[in-house]
Simulated scan of single mutants.
Amino acid sequence: MYYTTTPWKGCDLALKAFSIAAKKIPNLRLVAFGSGDTPPPYLPLTPGTEYNMAPTQDQLKKFYSKCDAWLFSSSSEGFGLPILEAMACGTPVIGTPAGAARELLAGGGGILVKPEDPEDMALAIERICQLSDAEWRAMSESALETVINYTWEDATDLFEAALYTARESQAQLAHKA
């Protein structure tokens, strides 16, 4: 997971979900990276977390690749680039429906969970940990396939659709006023 104290990134959600899942899954490990210094006391990492501060791009690839799943817990995103980064490494994503998560995870390269619901995210962690090697490889391949087939044209189409939706929402609000 990406560790930050920025509230809408949802670290508290991911940490709580991990703690719930860890009670049922022996030897579950958390790998996290962030851009800040050591985590503050009000948002502590689970003891034993492998934490790397400000990793290089090469290190990011290694972090994503060593995980069985990547936790994406944002409540608000413009896009959610870490989803694509993890999937490009063949790592399935467990994500909230922020940014492009709904579209990117629709192909089977991860699990979409309810926003701000640590129990649902914990269940998804358990589900991925219980997959057979063949089932996990299939999910990993779906994640990678999503990225391989993702183009700039796709991104611009999604961005354009979001702009139209925002414009329509603003027009509806103005009409009601």
Rank of each mutant, 00 (worst) to 15 (best):
E116C: 09
M139W: 04
Q59L: 08
R137A: 11
R167F: 12
P118K: 03
M1Q: 01
G78K: 03
G107C: 10
L28F: 09
M1G: 00
P26G: 10
A100W: 06
T6W: 11
A14H: 01
Y3M: 08
W152K: 09
M139A: 06
D154W: 07
E116A: 14
N149M: 05
A155F: 14
L28T: 09
L84T: 11
G110N: 07
A98Q: 02
E135H: 07
A161I: 01
L30N: 04
L104E: 02
C11N: 11
D68K: 14
F18V: 04
A54K: 15
T156R: 11
D58S: 14
T5A: 11
Q130R: 14
G78A: 14
H175L: 13
V147K: 05
P82A: 12
E168Q: 13
F72V: 04
Q172A: 15
G108E: 05
L30E: 02
G34D: 04
K66F: 00
G34K: 03
I25G: 00
R102F: 08
T46H: 14
P82T: 12
I83K: 01
L15N: 02
L84E: 09
G90S: 05
P39D: 03
Q170M: 13
L163A: 09
A22Y: 02
D58K: 14
A177G: 12
H175R: 14
V113M: 06
D117L: 04
A32L: 02
Q130A: 14
Y51R: 13
Q57D: 12
C67K: 03
I125V: 13
G90E: 01
A155D: 10
L104S: 06
L163W: 13
L105V: 07
G78T: 15
A98G: 04
A124Y: 07
A174F: 06
N52W: 11
E153F: 06
I148H: 11
I128V: 15
L105D: 03
L173Q: 12
L60A: 11
A161M: 06
S73M: 05
L105Q: 07
L15P: 01
S75V: 08
T4I: 05
W152V: 10
P26F: 11
V147N: 03
S73W: 03
A17R: 00
C129M: 15
A166R: 12
M87H: 06
F33G: 01
A162H: 09
E77I: 08
S140Q: 03
E85V: 10
A155V: 05
E160G: 04
L84C: 10
P39H: 12
K61C: 08
G109W: 03
Q172R: 15
A174I: 06
A98I: 05
K114V: 03
S19V: 00
C11I: 00
D154M: 08
G78R: 03
L43Y: 05
G107S: 14
D68H: 13
S132I: 06
P39G: 02
P115E: 12
S169Q: 14
I94D: 00
C129W: 04
